[in-house]
């Protein structure tokens, strides 16, 4: 986990408020059940799960930090590094594959120098390749960029969507939530 990124006091307060409002288990069983949900909500809030937020969750639910680290590294959806200005889910489900999503992945590698779960060197774009499926298969191949779907992509329209997003300036951070 990126320990050098510090959360501001205001951000920490947001996490505490969220935990106090929605995460009040009756017993240890329920506390265990709530961990994944709490991590997801934190990720929605910041676009990733900062170390200090994970520690707050551990304290609040009475579980160990190690256990939380184990979850963050097991479940593919969690990010432990802050994402770039723009966040893209690239669907690589079977329908998108048949529609040519491999060419989009190749384009990311060749043109932007990034692969799965990586951020471009200029911090502009983070991509998460979704192995499962976004479930909008009739628009394959498809991406979800800054909360907007772009479907029936060719390599050209794919690059255009990325460049347009970059020109429009940084997206809201919670757009990286997934």
């Amino acid at each position: 986990m990126a320990q050098d990124v510090q959360l501001s006091d205001a951000d920490l307060e947001k996490v505490r408020a969220l935990l106090n409002a929605n995460y009040n288990p009756q017993d240890h069983q329920e506390a265990q059940e709530l961990i994944l949900g709490a991590l997801q909500e934190v990720q929605h809030l910041f676009g990733w799960v900062p170390f200090e937020a994970a520690r707050l969750i551990a304290e609040h639910l009475g579980v160990s930090e190690n256990l939380i680290y184990g979850l963050l590294t097991f479940y593919a959806d969690f990010r432990t590094e802050p994402p770039g200005n723009h966040f893209m889910l690239l669907c690589h489900g079977t329908a998108c594959y048949v529609g040519g999503s491999q060419r989009l992945i190749d384009t990311l590698r060749d043109r932007y120098g990034i692969g799965a779960d990586e951020t471009t060197a200029d911090g502009e774009l983070t991509v998460q390749i979704v192995n499962g499926c976004l479930g909008v298969c009739d628009c394959a191949p498809l991406i979800h960029l800054d909360h907007v779907y772009h479907g029936n992509l060719t390599v050209e329209s794919f690059v255009e969507a990325i460049e347009n997003a970059k020109r429009n300036g940084p997206a809201r951070r919670d757009h990286a939530a997934h």
Partner: peptide, 24 residues
Amino acid sequence: RTGGGAYICGEGSALMYSVMGERG
């Protein structure tokens, strides 16, 4: 309860570990 993007959690016992807040 919600999962976190691990295909294996669709398997019965893995799903239950995930509900219980463990690695699936």
